[in-house]
């Protein structure tokens, strides 16, 4: 079943954040609050818009997610997966702690610039 989470970019550094249950903005989608479309979502969007007014985030919006077998939150759209996990091409800057990255075909692998991996 799909659920929604609310995401935005943080004003100060532009990084991707997700609205958590306690009203704070988490930098991992795993800490996002799962919402049902309808009034539950709408109420939280009000809060998110207030956070925009309060200069915390820019452009909040909701995305569709599913819960995986292991209980992780995973966006439905590719775009949102890349946004939540980091670029699929530059492994240094991706959230390696979160499973479910977009895969690469053939034997292409993401690049490590900082000598990791």
């Amino acid at each position: 079943m799909t659920r929604q989470v609310i995401t935005a970019n943080r004003l100060k550094d532009g990084l991707v954040v997700f609205l958590a249950e306690d009203g704070s903005w988490a930098d991992s989608i795993l800490d996002a609050q799962l919402l049902k479309a309808g009034s539950e979502l709408d109420n939280r969007l009000v809060l998110a818009n207030a956070a925009e007014q309060a200069k915390i985030v820019v452009g909040p919006y909701e995305i569709e997610v599913t819960e995986t077998d292991t209980g992780d939150i995973r966006p439905v759209r590719y775009r949102e997966r890349i946004r939540a996990y980091g670029p699929s091409t530059h492994a240094d800057f991706a959230r390696q702690d979160i499973p479910g990255h977009l895969t690469h075909l053939d034997d292409v692998s993401p690049v490590y610039f900082n000598g990791v991996g």
């Binding site: 590719y78 775009r79 890349i82 670029p87 699929s88 091409t89 530059h90 977009l102 690469h104 075909l105 053939d106 034997d107 292409v108």
Partner: peptide, 22 residues
Amino acid sequence: GLDYCALANARAIPLAQRISKR
């Protein structure tokens, strides 16, 4: 492409990487 760009439909860099390997 989709790895960085908010307007993208699809990834471009991984495709370039695959072609370069092919």
